[in-house]
Write a protein that binds this DNA or RNA. Structure first.
Lengths: 245, 245
DNA sequence: CGTTGCGTTGAATAAGGTCAAATAGAGTGG
DNA sequence: CCACTCTATTTGACCTTATTCAACGCAACG
């Protein structure tokens, strides 16, 4: 079931995995010069397909590599001893997964594909080696981890201080921004996750998500039909956030 | 008001700031060999006193250095546009503050001393330089950031799935564990933060914290009197967490 | 065409928030 | 050392929000 296939990149691509990747402005190569990116081509030499519903790695698995989403969509989940679990993140093309494993050499979260996906495998030992040589890569990698920390703090903020409507508005705006950055429409997209997964991520129950979607629709803020969402009033959504109470 | 004093370490200490520090097993030097730690002595050459209520840095300040708590106690807070703020962490001796600033060269959180404190200043440019030379330091630093990410995910879990009692139990157990690791009693300590700060961190109101403390006391789990806490039944607190519902 | 998973909606309930009042300490200045 | 002030804390009463439980609709799929 979880037997995602590993495929080496073909010969002609071998030298240009990152250099020619359209995601290079969003992914690990972000901010590096073309010459530096070429160095990455030796680092990232394998891709892996992961089918919808399959996991890339699971909590407890030994950590060996980071993974950049190339195509598709993933979720990360943490599991508590008593069985309760929570979605801690959604990952789109260009985003790096697996940073949680560096600290203990084992993954602490499970990562599951929400649609058929492909990832670039970044062997961690090689990344450390190369970032030791290429100064700007070291710096870039540190920034990436730092931004992950800041992102998580943003989610803590959301979970700690916001009401249901605010949380969902923040979630939609965040998706919108990320789709936009990838050249997709920032106002019309398909959700890859269920109401339950959204709820888990936002610390709410699926019924609350459903009700809040309906409410937003009544207010003319969005149009939802199943997984399809169109944002009709971006400013209105933003206003929901800015306001107190 | 925020004019915390910077004092270079005296000559005799200069060569042994980290090597002779009792916190070296908990702090940046963790896992490094004595020879490697000596290298750190050239990195950490300034300490800074921060009085209770003063901030070490504020959100928006340019990022220049990481700070290790040497003595005292800090909180980190994030502020939302509308003025709402949230405590995102408490920091004890040996813990590193400031990782949030690496990604954007500016701090995203404010850090405030909850009692008269002292920090070791770790200039970031030097840390990058040195971790470029000392391989194990690079590795150690990455692990430290990764653990911070995992910690934050734990808080997300807490905020997203736990009820008030569970949150406070988890909070007390976490403090207990950290005090214990520092050689203090894991069952008896003084809280440095107010009920409001605890509530902010746990996504609850101060009244809820107060009530839950009282409830724990009635159940014989703890004894609280103002800021003083004694854990009477460690297992009982743990049981609160393991159980569902 | 029934099954199955996902989503919507309503009604009742519980958890935590809000508001308010009383108390207790800690710190300050005389 | 004492009176005073200010802040933190506790507790009660009531209210709001989101959860729980339950029923039903819809769409995809074998």
């Amino acid at each position: 079931m979880d037997c995602a296939k590993t495929t080496p990149v073909s010969i002609q691509q071998l030298k240009k995995v990152c250099s020619t990747c359209s995601l290079r402005e969003l992914c690990l190569p972000m901010g590096l010069s073309p010459e530096e990116i070429e160095q990455l081509d030796h680092l990232v030499y394998t891709r892996k397909r992961v089918k919808r519903g399959e996991s890339l790695y699971r909590a407890g698995d030994p950590f060996t590599s980071l993974n950049a989403v190339r195509t598709g969509f993933f979720k990360s989940t943490v599991v508590l001893e008593d069985g309760r679990d929570q979605v801690t993140g959604f990952h789109m093309p260009g985003e790096i997964m697996g940073l949680d494993g560096i600290g203990t050499d084992r993954h602490t979260v499970s990562t599951i594909a929400l649609e058929d996906s492909e990832v670039c495998i970044i062997p961690y030992s090689r990344l450390e080696e190369l970032s030791h040589k290429v100064r700007s890569l070291q710096s870039q990698f540190h920034k990436m981890m730092s931004r992950e920390i800041v992102r998580d703090q943003g989610v803590m903020m959301l979970l700690g201080t916001m009401r249901a409507e605010e949380r969902l508005a923040a979630f939609l705006l965040n998706l919108s921004q990320r789709f936009g950055a990838r050249g997709y429409s920032p106002t019309e997209f398909n959700l890859r996750m269920t109401r339950e997964e959204i709820g888990s991520y936002l610390g709410l129950k699926l019924e609350t998500i459903s009700r809040t979607f309906s409410k937003f629709q009544e207010q003319g803020l969005i149009t939802v039909r199943q997984k399809h969402v169109r944002i009709e009033d971006l400013k209105g959504l933003r206003r929901l956030l800015g306001r107190e109470c």
